[in-house]
Design a protein around this nucleic acid. Structure first.
Length: 429
RNA sequence: GACCCCAUCGUCUAGCCUGGUCAGGACACUAGCUUUUCAAGCUAGUAACGCGGGUUCAAAUCCCGCUGGGGUCGCCA
């Protein structure tokens, strides 16, 4: 049976590159009906932090990458010591102080990589490898090999940056007398500038994407497209459907550049296709954190607002930006919008609109539109002469959804208040 | 520097294995439609096989070299 693992080190949050590695492992296991093991590589006691373990686990769950088994290397030190002693006894390793070091035999090592094919190394250029450090902890390669072997990992799927570790590790497998698993080295993910993905190039922590308002389904969908394709020109695909088409052998060899633009587009697609009720639920934590919603609120009204903006969001956080005018008491008017649409004195028009809107009943998009158009024709103006100034006065912005739907969700109270504030302000000038 | 990996539009990719479709799709970009603005949506368009040698009737596809990019050279993982 296929068994793969994802082995993050809790010395930091779950990185976007790590998430992609985890995803491909997960998909491979799911596609093969195998098992997916999560192994926390916390052998570095100083740099490893339990907060990071928690964060990594949370991120994995958020992405929907569940695991069948979980291990912590810090629980397995006895095992590493025991096997190191065996190697010492067998004369395959020697001591240097308290450290245990593996003698590197000189030979040719061939990796048959599932993605890259045959890779040949000559160990002549590889130094003897430290297995156990002087402090009694195992090195990465030793713990990794031992665990992969003992956990019956059938295929090691990891980043391309591990290719040069592989020959060293194969020598360790041989010294230990373990069967060598298959290997599949994934292409790396690069930043927009072509260099390695880093904080400088953009968000790298999975939690950052969560906080920015990306949907886990969209992030997972985007990540799987980096180095793999479902075929048939399909790009938007649910994880379950992708698993059915997944083949590790079809994974690309070349590194991929991470595109925030495309991720945002994909995220927007997912947001658009959601039920408004579900989207509203997802928006709640963002609205509460921003202080836009406290205690009780009108659920139906909120859904109406969400519905109005649903088609134009790239991220959940965008909603906070676009719909802020509905939630705040004191509107901040955009400088440029003010210059462009409120420079001209519209106090007379605003006064009349204020009067008519006060009488509109019921207060909805179609009744408002009628009242508005009546005012416009009575004043001998074009609709756009007033649409833009009114939008700026009510939302603080020159751009937004249709004006009447906007006024509808803003509600009568705030609309009337902002209209009167606008003409009083203009009269005063 | 040594060793290793990689190379199709600006970006993600299909095609490569098993040579023979105007090299297909998506993001971005441009234009048009729609429209009260901006998005969205729809339609159209610009845009790629890194270079040089082979092999072959025929090369994006197979081989070699070059160039370019990336990775690794820790008692970090």
């Amino acid at each position: 049976m296929v068994k793969v693992r994802f082995a993050p080190s809790p010395t930091g949050y779950l990185h976007i590159g790590g998430a992609r590695t985890a995803l491909f492992n997960w998909m491979y296991a799911a596609a093969q009906g195998g098992k997916f093991v999560l192994r926390i590589e916390d052998t570095d006691r100083i740099r490893s932090k339990s907060e990071y373990v928690d964060e990594i686990l949370e991120s994995m769950k958020w992405l929907g990458l569940t695991w069948d088994e979980i291990y912590y290397q810090s629980d397995r030190f006895d095992l590493y010591r025991k096997y190191a002693q065996n190697l010492l006894d067998a004369g395959k390793a020697y001591k240097e102080g308290d450290a245990v070091i593996l003698k590197m035999p000189q030979q040719e090592v061939v990796i048959y990589d599932l993605i890259r094919g045959k890779i040949t190394f000559d160990t002549a250029t590889i130094k003897d490898q430290v297995l156990m450090k002087s402090d009694g902890s195992p090195t990465y390669s030793f713990a990794c090999v031992l665990d992969d072997a003992l956990m019956d990992i059938t295929c090691v799927v990891r980043g391309e940056d591990h290719i040069s570790n592989t020959p060293k590790q194969m020598i360790i497998y041989e010294a230990l007398g373990f069967k060598i698993p298959k290997f599949a080295h994934l292409p790396l993910i690069m930043g927009e500038d072509g260099s390695r993905l880093s904080k400088r190039t953009g968000a790298v922590a999975v939690t950052d994407y969560q906080q920015e308002g990306f949907l886990p389904e969209a992030l997972v969908n985007y990540l799987m497209l980096l180095g793999w394709s479902p075929g048939n020109n399909q790009e938007i695909i649910k994880l379950a459907a992708a698993v059915k088409k997944f083949s590790i052998k079809k994974v690309n060899k070349a590194a991929a550049v991470f595109s925030m633009e495309k991720l945002k587009w994909l995220n927007g697609q997912y947001i658009k296709s959601m039920e408004t009720d579900a989207l509203t639920e997802l928006l709640m934590p963002f609205l509460k954190e921003k202080g836009y919603i406290k205690g009780d609120f009108d659920g139906q009204k909120l859904k109406n607002i969400v519905h109005l903006f649903q088609g134009r969001l790239s991220t959940l956080k965008d909603f906070l930006e676009w719909a802020d005018f509905v939630f705040v008491d004191h509107l901040t008017i955009d400088e440029d919008a003010q210059q462009k649409h409120l420079a001209q004195d519209r106090s007379k028009e605003f006064t009349l609109l204020h009067e008519r809107f006060s009488l509109v009943y019921p207060f909805n998009a179609s009744t408002l539109e009628k009242a508005f158009r009546d005012v416009v024709s009575e004043l001998g103006l074009k609709a756009s002469d007033l649409v833009h100034p009114v939008r700026v006065a009510l939302t603080g912005r020159a751009v937004g959804p249709g004006l009447f739907e906007t006024i509808d969700v803003l509600g009568k109270e705030k609309t009337i208040k902002r209209l009167s504030e606008a003409f009083m302000k203009q009269e005063a000038e």
